[in-house]
Design a protein around this nucleic acid. Structure first.
Lengths: 213, 213
DNA sequence: GTTTAATTCGACCATAGTGGTCTATGTGGA
DNA sequence: TCCACATAGACCACTATGGTCGAATTAAAC
């Protein structure tokens, strides 16, 4: 990546980054077209290869960009002091929603990278991505209070059930809002609906007040 | 589609169908290559366009083929006489596993059709697909016994939670077995693990024996 | 055994798109 | 008037595309 790119006005920079992120997300590395990227970014073809030495160089830059973005704007905002699993997942959902609102392309791009293993990546980058995944795991599981769960069911498995519910609801909302503009959506009513699910799970999975042992 | 295709030995027919299903599933309609299809099916290029008038003709044939397949080998085997949601989902999982073992390409292909709306489809085909989705919905929800659920939580929402758990576990298993040969997998231990999850949900969501009201 | 018909193949076609280069033309400061 | 940087897009060799076509092979009919 050429230093000129760093000195660009933020607008042009963002246009290029977002156009490229979207292209790679939708098409994958091989099928992604630099022609479409420059057209959507509204720059000349020559410029892309002035800023970046090759398609691959651009791709690797984007991965690095997204890793930094997720570390600073997503993971950094989640604290693990909340020891109630459901309450913590609730907070994570909030941060995630905010992040998705502001950087949807970065998140979607990284999602495709994580599910499809990509050949273009070298070992150091690969290990950075692994670290990122581990960190994502810790943020959910670290320092949880197992004693909240009823004693007659397995806590580990109940964890899973709760997580699947979070994921399921997320997907359900994505499906319901499938072709609406992300920036204009009011998520408030969905949070209320979601909290009802959380209450059910607390009623079903957590120790009732007054219960002993 | 040419009638000659119907008269082909089953082996060649299957080779062509499966090669095409896989190509369209992985690449989508536009990016799918007829060259790769004929190479993987081990037939000459000319033959594909002898059996089918065009790429689109092949594509539409495959959709029709899969709809019929799913209706006769999947939906037909599920009965809705079991009124306990969890037990019914258990049976559905069994049929689904069997089907996935024998016709994985058909199922994956239809899945991509259902999530990505495809332009190539005309109205009559579109409505057949909608019917299929409705049928899939009925198979889960028809004739269920709501009285099994505890009275202090919302039954509809609990349905959702249970479904999300089924889906979550399915995905988890797919992930764990991600690069193993589908035909050689022994699913038995996973069923045991899965039943443990179902027991938890019954304990948590269903009315306890002896409970009144 | 000869003629006719149904199958099979892959070289070939025009076309479109690829990643990347290069030249010509700004642009802004000294 | 320089000069260095920045910009655009025509252009390149190359690859892959969906689809065609004539020649070869096989099967059937007489």
């Amino acid at each position: 990546m050429n230093k000129t790119f760093k000195n660009l006005d933020r607008d042009k920079q963002k246009r290029i980054i977002n156009a490229a992120l979207r292209e790679f997300t939708v098409m994958g590395f091989e099928q992604a077209s630099t022609n479409r990227i420059v057209k959507n970014a509204e720059i000349g073809k020559g410029m892309l290869f002035y800023y970046f030495t090759s398609k691959k160089d651009l791709y690797l830059y984007l991965i690095d960009y997204c890793i930094k973005m997720i570390e600073s704007k997503y993971f950094a905002l989640i604290d693990t002091s909340e020891r109630d699993l459901i309450e913590r997942l609730k907070k994570i959902s909030n941060v995630k929603m905010d992040f998705m609102g502001e950087h949807p392309d970065s998140m979607n791009f990284m999602a495709t990278i994580l599910v499809e293993g990509v050949d273009q990546i070298d070992d150091t980058l690969k290990s950075r991505i692994e670290k990122l995944q581990e960190k994502g795991y810790d943020i959910i599981y670290d320092n949880l209070d197992y004693s909240l769960f009823r004693k007659d069911i397995d806590a580990e498995k109940t964890f899973k059930l709760i997580q699947w519910a979070f994921h399921g609801y997320e997907e359900e909302i994505k499906y319901r809002l499938r072709d609406q503009d992300v920036t204009t959506i009011d998520y408030e009513p969905y949070f209320d609906e979601f909290f009802a699910y959380l209450d059910i799970m607390k009623t079903a999975f957590y120790t009732k007040e007054g219960d002993i042992k």
